[in-house]
Simulated scan of single mutants.
Amino acid sequence: MKKNMGSLDRGIRVILAAVFVILYYNNIVTGVLGYVLLAFATIFLLTSVISFCPLYPLLGINTCKTK
């Protein structure tokens, strides 16, 4: 897998994941929507760690500046 995520993209995903987790654990978002947000948070963190988003090649997006 080639890296296709830049540092700004990774940072935004980590921040969004943190916001989703905070919303869930403070009972602001509950039920099915809460579980969906937790799933998205997990996906965002995982893709940030490996610097690869599987949707980007399908959409022709590459935010990584290194070749």
Score class of each variant (00 low, 15 high):
L33Y: 10
Y35D: 11
I22S: 12
A18V: 13
I50P: 03
T30Q: 12
V21T: 06
K65F: 08
I22G: 14
A17Q: 08
K67T: 07
N4Y: 06
Y24Q: 00
M5T: 06
K3V: 14
V32K: 10
I61F: 11
F20T: 06
V21G: 00
V14I: 14
L46R: 15
T42M: 09
L55I: 14
D9Y: 12
T42P: 00
I43M: 14
N62W: 03
G6W: 02
G60H: 00
I43C: 07
P57K: 11
L58A: 11
V49P: 07
C53N: 05
V36Q: 15
T63Q: 03
N4W: 07
N26H: 14
I43D: 12
N62L: 10
Y25N: 10
I12K: 13
V19R: 09
F44L: 14
V29Y: 10
A41W: 03
M1K: 11
Y24A: 02
T63C: 05
L8E: 08
V14P: 03
V14Y: 02
V21P: 00
L8D: 15
F40M: 11
L37S: 03
T47P: 07
Y24P: 00
I28A: 13
P54F: 00
A41N: 06
L45W: 01
I28V: 12
R13K: 04
G6H: 01
S7P: 07
K65Y: 08
I22T: 02
L59I: 08
N26C: 10
V19F: 09
F44D: 07
G60I: 03
L45S: 12
C53Y: 01
L46E: 10
L55S: 09
T63S: 06
C64K: 12
G6V: 13
Y56I: 03
L33A: 12
F52I: 05
F52Q: 03
Y25L: 11
Y56R: 12
L45A: 15
V29L: 04
L46F: 11
F20G: 00
A39Y: 13
L37T: 05
C53S: 04
N62F: 06
G6Y: 01
V19D: 04
L33T: 13
I12T: 07
V19E: 03
L58Q: 15
G11Y: 00
I22R: 06
T63W: 02
N62H: 08
I61L: 08
N27S: 14
R10A: 08
N62Y: 02
K2F: 05
I50W: 12
A39R: 12
K3Y: 10
N27R: 03
V32R: 11
N62T: 04
I12R: 13
D9S: 04
G6I: 13
N27P: 03
Y35T: 09
F52T: 05
L55V: 08
V36K: 14
F40C: 10
N26R: 13
G60A: 03
M5H: 00
D9F: 05
Y24R: 01
V29D: 13
T47M: 05
C53Q: 02
N27K: 02
D9P: 00
V29G: 14
G34T: 06
S51H: 15
N26T: 12
D9G: 04
L55M: 11
P54T: 02
F52E: 04
F40P: 04
L23T: 13
V32Y: 04
